[in-house]
Design a protein around this nucleic acid. Sequence first.
DNA 1: TTTAAATTCTACCTTAGAGTAGTAATTGAA
DNA 2: TTCAATTACTACTCTAAGGTAGAATTTAAA
Lengths: 137, 137
Amino acid sequence: MQLHNTSQYAIRVLNFFANHSDDRLYSAKELAELLSIPYKFLTKIMGILVKAEFIKSIQGREGGYELNKPASQIKLIDILNTFNDETDNESCILGVGICDGHNKCALHDQWMQPKGLLRKMFEETTLENLTSADCKL
Amino acid sequence: MQLHNTSQYAIRVLNFFANHSDDRLYSAKELAELLSIPYKFLTKIMGILVKAEFIKSIQGREGGYELNKPASQIKLIDILNTFNDETDNESCILGVGICDGHNKCALHDQWMQPKGLLRKMFEETTLENLTSADCKL
DNA sequence: TTTAAATTCTACCTTAGAGTAGTAATTGAA
DNA sequence: TTCAATTACTACTCTAAGGTAGAATTTAAA
C-alpha cells in the first residue's frame, strides 16, 4: 500500500519547482543533490516529465529545467497517471473485478471511506496546495 | 496504491474459511477452483498461512485445511504483515524518512486523514467483520 | 572554433513480486 | 500392502520496477 518510487521522486521534484519559482533553471545535477535522488535515475524521470509537459527543458550548456505550467494546474493524480501508479477507482481492493453496491467483495464496505479520501487527495491536491515552507525535500 | 496480489489472495482465502465454518476440510484443489486462484500459487500461499498459524493443515489423503483460530482473532493487518505488505504508519508517503508534525514532507498534511482511515481499516477489521453473505469470493 | 556543461537516447543490470514445475512426504482407503 | 489424494518442499521462470552506464546531441561561454 504505497506509491511507486518513481511517483514519489516525481512529486518531490515537481514540488521543488513549485516552491522555487525564481526565474532560473535547475540542472539535473543540482536537483539530484538537493533532493538526494540518484542522478542517472533522475535524468530518466526528468525525460518523462518533459514529455508529459509538466517540465520544460533547455538543452546545452547553461541549460536545465523549469516548470512548464502553473503549479495550480498540476494535480497529483496527473503525476501518478504518468507513472502508471494505480489510481483506478473502479477496480476492487481484493482484485475481484469491479465492485459496486450490488456486487461487492468482502472488504468493499470497509474500503469505501478510505478509498474516497484517497481519491479526493489525489484528485483535488495540486502542487500549489502542497506544504511550501519548512518541508523536507 | 494497492495491495499485493498475495495479500489479496490470502484475505480471500481466509475470508472463505471464516464464512464456511462447517466442520470439514477444504483441499487446495477445491479452494483454487472456488476462488479462481492458480493452484500452484495457492499451495505456496497456504504454506505461508499455515506457518503463520492462521490455518491448520491436515496432511495425507482426505487431508486439507481449516481455520486455526476464531475469525474474530484474525485482523487484516496481521495478514498484510505476513506478506510484507507495507503498513508501516511511520514511514512517509513520499519516501522521505519519518514524518511528524515538526518535520514533514510536502504531502504530509493531506495524507494524515486518509492514512488514519486506512490504518483504522487494517487494524480494526477482523475476518468476522467482513461481508459474509452475497459477496464475491 | 574549441570546449565544457548540460540534456537526450539506447541499452543494460538488479531486485522483488508473481507464478510454475516437479518431486518428496504423508496418510487414509481399498 | 498398495495406491491415490493430499500437503510440503525446492528450485526455477517471467515480468515490471528500480537503477546504472555510456555515448550522442545541443548550446553557450571562453
